[in-house]
């Protein structure tokens, strides 16, 4: 389990994290979401003991990272797939990491095999595509067979086949009871990959929950079809709902849930043809939640405004 408690971090005048707290539990894939510049990478560096927060602390199963005696056996992290000396071969890169934590050379060959790089292991890392580098990064995470895994934007630069592969890897690792934190700024990807989602913006915690919870609790519109749309619309507006006629003879009702709309229809004896709560996409939820928390938001107005 990863615990982040009241972490604040500034770089000079730039505030990266403000009093951020959350927990990441084992056995599920936790998505770590936020717009670019929201502090996801900073949080991961702090969890890894690479950057020191001004306030608060981050622990892994109760221990500070820098107190771990054999860290690769506890935590595997892929922060930047390109953070490898370009002149060093993939195999030597992994051998150096493995040796530092008393991990056998046999294990190096095993992880190379697992990520599909065994055939190119003696090529220099600088010749690798981003996708191959991501695979090498995953291999380095798995060297010590750790219980906690951190991946910072692992999907970036992967082709569709690579994305499907990485999703399967995450699934397998989570099913083995490991704690997995995957950051991304792509909602749609997390909807497919993560079980649980933590959302941050401008360095602050915004919300967390399962993908289902987030999309359901945020859905506040209901699609209604009835035999007498105009009479129903009037009755609903009288209950302070916002009613917007939709193409095809439906009404989009906001401000009342499906149950309340049903009761209004019953009271006024309007026969309903359809009553469908609209489920927000995770993308919509994210845009709504992080509006105002985006570091570099584009303005609504055009450039000639």
């Amino acid at each position: 389990m990863i615990t982040v408690e009241h972490v604040s971090k500034s770089y000079g005048d730039t505030v990266a994290l403000r009093d951020l707290s959350f927990e990441v539990s084992a056995g599920v894939i936790t998505g770590f979401l936020g717009p670019n510049g929201s502090g996801k990478s900073t949080t991961m560096r702090i969890i890894m003991g690479l950057d020191e927060p001004q306030r608060g602390r981050a622990t892994i199963d109760g221990h500070s990272y820098r107190d771990l005696s054999s860290p690769l056996h506890a935590v595997g992290a892929l922060l930047d797939a390109k953070a490898i000396h370009p002149g060093r071969t993939a195999r030597n890169h992994l051998r150096a990491l493995a040796t530092s934590n008393d991990i056998s050379q046999r294990r190096v060959e095993d992880v190379l095999e697992f990520v599909g790089l065994a055939g190119v292991a003696d090529r220099r890392a600088g010749e690798f595509s981003l996708g191959m580098s991501q695979r090498l990064g995953i291999a380095s995470c798995l060297l010590g067979d750790p219980g906690v895994l951190l991946f910072d934007e692992p999907i970036n630069g992967l082709d569709p086949e690579g994305i499907r592969w990485i999703r399967e890897v995450f699934r397998t690792l989570a099913s083995e009871g490991r704690t997995i934190l995957v950051s991304s700024h792509l909602m749609s990807e997390m909807a497919l990959t993560a079980d649980h989602v933590i959302v941050i913006g401008k360095g602050s915690f915004i919300t967390q929950g399962t993908v289902d919870e987030l999309t359901t609790t945020r859905a506040n519109a209901v699609l209604v079809r009835s035999a007498e749309n105009e009479r129903l619309a009037g009755a609903l507006r009288a209950e302070d709902a916002t009613v917007t006629p939709q193409p095809g003879g439906a009404l989009l009702v906001e401000g009342l849930d499906a149950g309340a709309i049903g009761r209004v229809a019953l009271r006024d004896s309007v026969a309903l043809v359809e009553l469908t709560p609209q489920r927000a996409s995770l993308e919509d939820v994210f845009m709504e939640l992080t509006a105002g928390a985006t570091e570099y938001a584009s303005t609504q107005r055009g450039i000639d405004a």
Binding site: R66, P71, V75, A77, L79, A83, H85, P86, N101
Partner: peptide, 14 residues
Amino acid sequence: ATGSIRPTLAATPR
């Protein structure tokens, strides 16, 4: 220069 200091210090936090 290459950023490999982070994997290095992650493997050897002392």
